[in-house]
C-alpha cells in the first residue's frame, strides 16, 4: 500500500500532470497591475521559501530556478539583507531532488543565515500550519497570519519580484501561471501580466468539444471561476481547467481512468458508512465524520467540541470519502457559526 495514503495524500502520483519546458508569453494590451509587495510592519525572524510544490498542477520549481539555483539564492540573499536583515531563511525542497539538495547544501556552506529542509511532496504538507510545524516546531492556528509569530512565508516568484522591482528597480510585470487539466488541449506554463482576464489567457488552449469548468489555486481547496472575465492578480498560483462530466457513464468501475481527472463525483451520495477513510487521511489527526454526524443530526454547534479549530481545510476528507459527503463544506459551515 502506498505510504502516502496515511496522513496526507500523494496527489502527484495519482494525477500526473506534465508541463512543457517552454514558457509562453501571453499578449495583453489592456490595463495591467504593477507589482507590489506589502512588507510586514512586524519584525521578521524566519523566512520560509517553499520550492517543493505538493500539488501536481502547481508551478514546477525548475521554471523558477531555470538551472541557476545560485542566482535564485543570490537574489534571496539580496532581498534578505535589504529588507529582513535579522531573519533566518529556510528553503524547503523535495527530498527526492538530490541534485537540487546538493546544490543548495554547497551554497549553504558559506552562509549561516540559510538552512535547507527536505520534505516529501505529499499534499497538504506545504500548508502554512504544517510547514511551520515541520520546520520550526511551532503551533500556529489555521487562518492566522504567520507574521504575528514573525514568520514570513515567501512565494518563490515574489523573491524574484522583490529583487527585480524594489532592489534592481527594473520593470517587473509578469507572473508565471501554469495551466493544466483535461479541459485543455495541452498543459502550458504562461507568462502573464497580472490584470489579464482569464478568458484571454485560456482562449487558445481550451477544448471546444466538451464542457469544462475553470478553477483557481488548486482543485482541493481553491475556488471556481464562474466569470471568465475575472482578472489574474499577483497572488494567483495556478489555473486548472477540467472536464465537466455531467452525464452518465456506463460501467464506471471499468472506466475509472476516463472519469479520473474530471469534476465527476465518481459515485453517489450515500450515508456515512464509518469506513475511517477520512480520519486515516487527515493530516492533522481529526475525525471529520464526527462533524458530519453532528451536522446530520442538526447539531452544528456541537461540532466545535471535537477540535474543529485545528482543521486546516485541505479538503482531503471530502476527496477520499467513498460516500461522497461534502465534508469540507460541512466543516466550513460549522466553523462559521459563532
Amino acid at each position: 500500500m502506498k505510504k502516502a495514503y496515511k496522513k496526507g495524500f500523494n496527489l502527484i502520483e495519482t494525477y500526473p500532470v506534465k508541463f512543457p519546458e517552454t514558457v509562453i508569453l501571453v499578449k495583453y494590451d489592456g490595463p495591467v497591475d504593477n507589482f507590489s509587495f506589502s512588507f510586514p510592519d512586524k519584525k521578521v525572524e524566519h523566512i520560509i521559501v517553499n520550492l517543493c510544490p505538493t500539488e501536481p498542477w502547481a508551478l514546477p520549481n525548475r521554471v523558477i530556478l531555470r538551472n541557476a539555483t545560485h542566482d535564485f539564492l543570490d537574489k534571496l540573499e539580496a532581498v534578505r539583507t535589504e529588507y529582513f536583515p535579522d531573519s533566518h531563511c529556510h528553503v524547503v525542497v523535495d527530498h527526492l531532488e538530490s541534485n537540487l539538495v546538493n546544490e543548495l547544501t554547497q551554497f549553504k556552506t558559506q552562509k549561516d543565515w540559510l538552512s535547507i529542509h527536505t520534505m516529501e511532496a505529499v499534499y497538504p504538507y506545504d500548508a502554512p500550519v504544517l510547514i511551520v510545524k515541520n520546520i520550526l516546531g511551532l503551533d500556529i492556528a489555521f487562518g492566522q497570519n504567520t507574521i504575528e509569530d514573525g514568520i514570513l512565508i515567501l512565494d518563490p516568484q515574489n523573491v524574484t519580484g522583490i529583487f527585480e522591482y524594489y532592489i534592481k528597480e527594473t520593470e517587473f510585470n509578469t507572473r508565471l501561471i501554469p495551466i493544466s487539466g483535461t479541459g485543455l488541449k495541452d498543459n502550458k506554463i504562461l507568462k502573464v501580466k497580472p490584470g489579464t482576464p482569464i478568458k484571454s489567457m485560456l482562449e487558445l488552449y481550451v477544448r471546444t468539444d466538451i464542457k469544462y469548468r475553470v478553477f483557481l489555486d488548486g482543485l482541493l481547496n481553491g475556488t471556481e471561476v464562474k466569470d471568465l472575465t475575472q482578472k489574474i492578480d499577483w497572488s494567483t498560483k495556478n489555473i486548472i481547467v477540467i472536464e465537466e462530466r455531467d452525464y452518465k457513464t456506463p460501467f464506471p468501475y471499468l472506466n475509472v481512468n476516463e472519469l479520473l481527472f474530471t469534476t465527476s463525483l465518481m459515485g453517489e451520495l450515500r450515508r456515512c458508512v464509518y469506513c475511517n477513510f477520512c480520519d486515516d487521511i487527515c493530516p492533522v489527526n481529526l475525525e471529520p465524520a464526527l462533524y458530519w454526524h453532528c451536522y446530520d443530526r442538526g447539531e452544528k454547534h456541537k461540532a466545535r467540541t471535537y477540535a474543529l479549530e485545528k482543521c486546516i481545510e485541505c479538503g482531503l476528507c471530502s476527496f477520499s470519502c467513498p460516500s461522497k459527503l461534502e465534508l469540507l463544506q460541512v466543516i466550513r459551515e460549522c466553523k462559521s457559526l459563532k
Binding site: 495519482t14 494525477y15 469548468r213 478553477f215 482543485l219 482541493l220 481547496n221 481553491g222 475556488t223 471556481e224 477540467i242 465537466e244 462530466r245 455531467d246 452525464y247 452518465k248 457513464t249 456506463p250 460501467f251 464506471p252 468501475y253 475509472v256 472519469l259 479520473l260 481527472f261 474530471t262 469534476t263 465527476s264 463525483l265 465518481m266 459515485g267 453517489e268 451520495l269 450515500r270 458508512v273 469506513c275 477513510f277 479538503g315 482531503l316 471530502s318 476527496f319 477520499s320 470519502c321 467513498p322 460516500s323 461522497k324 461534502e326 469540507l328 463544506q329
Partner: peptide, 29 residues
C-alpha cells in the same frame, strides 16, 4: 437498477472539485 450499471450525473459543486475514485459501490464490490 441504473445505479448498478452507470455512474451518476452528479458533479462536484463544492470544493474539492475532484474526488477519489473509491465509492461505496467499489467498497461493497
Amino acid at each position: 437498477t441504473d445505479g448498478l450499471i452507470r455512474s451518476t450525473k452528479n458533479t462536484a459543486k463544492n470544493p474539492p472539485f475532484i474526488r477519489s475514485s473509491m465509492d461505496v459501490k467499489q467498497y461493497m464490490g
